[in-house]
Simulated assay, not measured.
Amino acid sequence: MRTKVAAILTATLLTGSLLASPGTARAQLTAGDDLLAAARAGTSERLVSSRPSPAEVQRALVKIARASDGRVRLGAIGRSNEGRPLRLASVGHGPLRLLFVTQQHGDEPLGTPAAIRALWTLGVPDTPWQRALLKRVTLDVVVQANPDGAVRNQRYNHDPSATGDYAEPGVGYDINRFHNPLTPIADNPVPESRAILRLWHATRPRIVVDYHMQGRYVQPDGRETTASILWPTSPLVTDTTTSRQLAVRNYDAMTKLAGANVTRYPGGDYEGIARNAYGILGSASLLVELSELPEDQAEFQIRTAYVSMLATVQGAADGSLWRIDPARADTIPARGPSLPSATTHTEDAA
């Protein structure tokens, strides 16, 4: 029976039997459609804008939870430094736990609408595909981890008293530098990071994927990078095999199914970065950086992250993720130089 279900799930990814978003006429895509077609069909009605406010996020999550008849569960893992809820959406009841985090940097928003779209696809329809998938996995999503930064369109959280490394005095802390597993959580000065760390310890996810945005970069062949990915690089990570398999899975999905030009991100090895921290703790961990393309390409970037999310969940559920050759990660091309005159994020070493 287990083999049969795995085969069904694998075929689903290849044929794209995924439900479109609300308002789509068909309840389920038919055999022969692929995941890219599913992603395109899923854009017919948007639940949030490409740069959603915390209020937009709340309204969308409530709508999804109601439409899902309880399959999508809502909660909060804490509050931001300014008192806004740090929203958690969960779907599935399987033993394999996954954790996605979006918008740790408030000015890097596109992972958030992608996550909302993925939550609808996974939780609202009640088809054999969804039921089989959600018996195997439980997905937790911290949606818009930095709401204070989001309302200000700034990288940092809001903490005028912030001082020390990875802080902007008078502005706040860089949340994605405060996941250090070597620091007691009670001593962590950043409430958003503390909350995510506590969630990790409560759920022990097998997979953690952190969605960010980067500047604009060009490859030697002249093509522009549209996304970059990286697994943990801290020397404290004893085994990166599963993280590298996760990277390959995402590379294949984003390039083949979303049409993205994906490169290897040149990140650093500091253990406080989420990508490294959760690898140190034992999860398969991945950073996904969407390039900040012109606004008219925001939908393409959202779809890229959406495909990444669905492919990760699918690969974990059917077990295909763990059969990938991790050495293939070394063939992911390095990110090229900045595109001339392009605005860049201060994301190096993320």
Rank of each mutant, 00 (worst) to 15 (best):
I332G: 00
G272I: 05
P326V: 06
L339Y: 04
M254H: 05
A311C: 11
Q314Y: 04
T312P: 08
G336P: 05
A342L: 08
P294H: 10
L310V: 10
A298N: 15
H345N: 13
S285W: 06
T346A: 14
E289L: 08
V307E: 00
A329H: 00
I273C: 10
A284Q: 10
Y278H: 10
A258V: 05
R323I: 12
H345K: 14
D325P: 09
A277P: 11
A258C: 01
T263I: 01
R275Y: 11
V313G: 01
L286Y: 02
S341N: 15
D296E: 15
R275H: 11
V313H: 06
A316V: 04
Y265F: 12
D325R: 02
T304G: 09
G267C: 08
L293W: 05
Q297W: 03
L281E: 10
T312Y: 06
A311S: 15
S283L: 05
D325F: 07
A305W: 02
L293Q: 09
A284G: 11
P326H: 06
G319S: 05
T344L: 15
D252C: 07
T344R: 13
R335D: 04
M309N: 10
E271I: 14
R275K: 15
A277T: 11
P294F: 06
L293V: 07
Q297S: 03
A329I: 03
D296R: 14
V288T: 11
V262D: 00
N276F: 08
D252E: 15
P326G: 04
T346N: 15
I273H: 11
L286E: 06
S285I: 02
M254V: 03
Q297N: 04
Q301P: 06
A317Y: 06
D318A: 05
L293M: 09
V307N: 01
A311H: 12
A258F: 09
A260W: 06
N276P: 12
S308Q: 07
M254W: 07
Y270Q: 10
L281M: 13
L287G: 09
A334I: 08
H345L: 14
A277L: 11
A253N: 07
E292R: 12
L257K: 11
D318N: 09
Q297D: 04
T331G: 09
F300R: 07
L293S: 08
Y306H: 12
F300A: 05
F300I: 05
R328Y: 11
L293C: 03
D296K: 12
Y265I: 01
R264L: 12
A311N: 12
I273Y: 14
A284H: 03
R264T: 01
G279I: 02
T346E: 14
A329L: 04
P266C: 03
D330I: 08
E271Q: 14
D330L: 11
P337Q: 02
S320Q: 03
S338A: 14
D269P: 09
I273N: 13
E289F: 09
A284S: 07
A342H: 07
T343N: 14
D318V: 04
T312M: 05
Y278A: 00
L339W: 07
A274D: 09
D296G: 12
A305V: 02
D330A: 14
D330G: 14
Y251A: 02
